[in-house]
Amino acid sequence: MTDADKLAVLWDERAITKVMLNFGRALDAGDWPLYRSTFTDHVLIDFKRLTGCDEIRVSADDWTDFAELILSPVRRHHTYSNFHIDVDGDHALALVYMTARHWKATDLGVSEYNQYGWYDVHFERRGERWLIARIKHDFQWVSGNNALFDMSEPNLAASMAKVFCDENRKAAIAALAL
């Protein structure tokens, strides 16, 4: 590998790391345009451990709307570490450890809900930018009160029905078969 090749790999790894850091920073700050900017126009989402729903292929706009609706009522703090990135041309795979902390004042149990695990992320280079094309959220354990998230809130329930619908599940199956 030449010095130029090594430099290119380092540059790609840095750019991919920055996408993940923007992803987390946007979640915490509620910067939904920044969050949306980390994805390809359609993205494969596997949050089955968290949602119980199979992997879906959904528009990044709909996914961002869902994230905003579910997370806005709580305070958030995401930290990422142990980045392992493999670049192969215009595609890359990353394993990124995460801790996701959530807080909301409540009289129905503890005010915190935390997740400890990682993301498996597939990136695609689009022009000069790296974007998330597929993401799997996994965790080793959780602690606290998952009831901080009010799944019965009408706008959130409607968003979940739109995002986790059969059509999006079937689209994921078709995309993965390619």
Rank of each mutant, 00 (worst) to 15 (best):
M1S: 13
T2W: 01
T2K: 04
D5F: 02
K6L: 12
A8D: 09
V9W: 00
L10A: 07
E13H: 06
R14K: 06
G24D: 13
A26V: 01
D31L: 12
D31M: 13
L34P: 09
Y35V: 06
S37W: 09
H42N: 15
L44D: 10
I45T: 03
D46F: 01
L50G: 06
T51P: 03
G52N: 03
D54C: 03
I56N: 01
R57E: 14
R57C: 14
R57Y: 12
R57V: 13
V58P: 03
S59P: 00
D61M: 04
T64K: 01
F66V: 05
L69P: 02
L69S: 07
L71M: 07
R76F: 02
R76N: 09
R76G: 08
R76P: 00
Y80H: 15
S81A: 15
H84Q: 14
D86Y: 00
V87Q: 04
D88P: 09
D90R: 03
H91S: 09
A94P: 02
A94R: 02
A94W: 01
M98R: 05
A100I: 05
A105D: 05
A105Y: 07
D107N: 14
G109I: 10
Y113E: 14
N114F: 08
N114R: 13
Y119R: 04
H122W: 07
H122S: 07
F123Q: 04
R125G: 04
W130E: 05
R134N: 12
H137E: 09
D138P: 03
D138N: 10
W141M: 11
N146C: 00
D150C: 11
E153R: 13
N155L: 13
L156A: 05
M160E: 13
M160H: 04
A161L: 11
K162P: 06
D166L: 10
E167T: 08
E167R: 14
K170Y: 06
K170D: 11
A172G: 14
A175S: 13
A175N: 08
L178H: 15
